[in-house]
Design a protein around this nucleic acid. Structure first.
Length: 274
DNA sequence: CTAACTCCCTGATAGC
DNA sequence: TGCTATCAGGGAGTTA
């Protein structure tokens, strides 16, 4: 389940292999992803283009080309990116490929097809979804106590739901939301209006800490995630609450509670996160 | 405006 | 053993 850290690990892994490479062709599979792939547009803008840079916005990986197009990839739940020799057989669930001049192909494999492949071009770059409505990056200065206080005002949402709202802050999914709140010692059901500035400051600091640690560990591998070299991450060994229903809390040994919030599995320690 | 819901998809696993 | 039900979940869309 790739969230911000997993996408960042993939970006860092792919960057040296992709930067400066020419795209000599593309592969568009038959199956529809969460959004239909704009195959004609992809072909038109990517063939013969040079890859200038790889960026990330929230959970989106951005591949920028010298003709000012940007390929926007979302991995959904089960999406993977990997480099393979161009003549090697495609795997089941390979839905998209960038054929590169160096005889490698960047392949997008997505079992559950919750991912998406989009492209923005110079004509439509400025205010196009999906990037237009995204909230600030967790590591940006815009993600501040004042910002969160203003967003929380007038809402009756629990904090976990707010943290997972990509319009508020980009890149935090279900796993890291639970981990961030455990590290912050704040219950996931706390209404956002009741949090003090100090508590918001803690949430910001712990968000950055947890995400940074997860990136350093190569991400979290629960089921599907592997990096661009096919290697799993190791942050799952550092998870304090996610997936630990009834197991003892690392701090106080109280059994971890599993609940459901907004239809999502939610984990917290009832003792450390009152 | 917010918030709660549904839907998309496959495969692993639980339960009978 | 073989079947069915359940669960995993981001984001877009719909409804209240």
């Amino acid at each position: 389940m790739p969230e911000l850290p997993e996408v960042e690990v993939i970006r860092l892994g792919l960057l040296p292999h992709l930067q400066g490479q020419q795209i000599t062709g593309i592969y568009c599979g038959e199956k529809r992803l969460r959004l239909a792939m704009p195959c004609a547009l992809l072909e038109q803008w990517l063939r013969n283009a040079l890859i200038k840079d790889l960026k990330r916005r929230g959970k989106y990986l951005l591949i920028e080309t010298d003709n000012k197009a940007t390929l926007i990839i979302h991995l959904g739940m089960s999406g993977r990116l990997g480099l393979f020799p161009i003549h090697s057989a495609r795997h089941r669930h390979d839905h998209f490929g960038l054929v590169l001049h160096n005889t490698l192909e960047l392949r997008f494999n997505d079992t559950r097809r919750f991912g998406s492949i989009q492209i923005v071009t110079p004509d439509n770059y400025p205010n196009l979804p999906p990037l237009a409505g995204l909230g600030p990056e967790p590591f940006s200065t815009e993600f501040s106590t004042g910002y969160l206080l203003s967003k929380a005002a007038g809402r009756k949402q629990p904090i976990k739901n707010l943290l997972m709202d990509s319009r508020i802050v980009a890149g935090i999914g279900n796993i890291y939301a639970s981990e961030i709140l455990f590290a912050s010692r704040i219950s996931p059901i706390t209404p956002v209006t009741t949090l003090s500035p100090t508590q918001w400051q803690t949430v910001i600091a712990k968000t950055r800490l947890i995400l940074k640690q997860a990136i350093a560990c190569g991400g979290t591998t629960i089921a599907d995630y592997v990096n661009s070299s096919g290697q799993p991450g190791y942050f799952q060994n550092e998870l304090r609450v996610y997936g630990r229903k009834n197991l003892p809390c690392a701090r106080c040994a109280t059994p971890i509670l599993k609940t459901v919030m907004a239809g999502r599995a939610t984990y917290h320690c009832p003792c450390c996160q009152p």
